[in-house]
Design a protein around this nucleic acid. Structure first.
Lengths: 154, 154
DNA sequence: CCGGTTTTAGAAAAATTTTCGGCATGGAAC
DNA sequence: GTTCCATGCCGAAAATTTTTCTAAAACCGG
């Protein structure tokens, strides 16, 4: 983080909003010419600050309007069971995110599906099939209030 | 969704993995020439399937290694209070995501901060300042097991 | 089989990315 | 104070990509 000056930070703020900005447009906003902007971007990529560039798609248009969070608790907490659970979760395409949590619940999953029926089938035939699951608690998203794609950079 | 053929779907799958693929590279993978690929991308952008292009940054390198999920319940559920809460949440940079949920809890927040102390201050001086909050329940992410950036496309 | 529409191929033009040599700035050594 | 070195920036050229355009091919309904 100390490797970044104010120009780098502004550059990152711009690119995490719109990765299609041309070097020329970025240069104008940063009051620089093309070369230094180009070199800074390459440096930020090489240092790992920029991990990748992605297209953000519309999940409703893609027919996946339902989002749920599912809290999972394991029956036993042996390392082998935990590792196995994590491996299985990674294979499930419906699970977009999975976190190992502190507190009562062991894992929190964020899931996208096309319908309630699909969710039912997902829980019944995929999630519940995983060994050693104790409790499952699903809550549905009614409305997305906010979803920032980037991080604040100070 | 019916507006998409198999080529469109493959194109979207590729672009949500790596938005920097050139039209030429995409054309090769899709067994087409530049023009149709170019036109399909423009069409997918215009139809809204592609919402934007972003650079994905490394939150650890940016100095925000702590992720928490915070469950919020309101004291009263008048529309005015709910609207007010949503407005206030949108202003808080620490809150990356906010969902209105079905079930016991009203809102689920995903929060990124640089330290536990920051989280404490965030809850004490920002979140709790919002009117009409009933209960707050924070759980910390110990480990990110999975975090897909795109959606499965069938 | 034909007419009309849509999609693609191919090439040229415009714009962007990438490379590179040189100049200015600032700090360290002497 | 001067020299040397490192760093970052500028400007132009080269390479590549994006974008536009016209004609040909493929598809569909009648």
């Amino acid at each position: 983080m100390e490797q970044l000056d104010e120009i780098d930070k502004k550059l990152l703020r711009l690119l995490q909003e719109d990765a299609k900005l041309t070097t020329k447009e970025l240069a104008a906003q940063l009051s620089l010419t093309l070369s230094p902007v180009y070199e800074r971007i390459k440096r930020l990529e090489n240092l790992g600050f920029i991990k990748q560039y992605v297209a953000v798609l519309d999940k409703n248009l893609l027919g996946q309007p339902i989002t749920t969070f599912c809290q999972v608790s394991m029956r036993y907490h042996d390392k082998a069971f935990i590792d196995k659970f994590e491996e299985e979760i990674k294979k499930l395409e419906e699970v977009q995110e999975c976190y190992h949590m502190a507190g009562q619940v062991d894992f929190l999953l964020k899931i996208h599906v096309s319908s309630l029926e699909r969710y039912h089938n997902f829980v019944k035939y995929k999630l519940s099939e995983i060994e050693n699951i104790g409790t499952l608690n699903s809550t549905f998203v009614l409305k997305e209030i906010k979803h920032d794609l980037g991080y604040p950079i100070h």
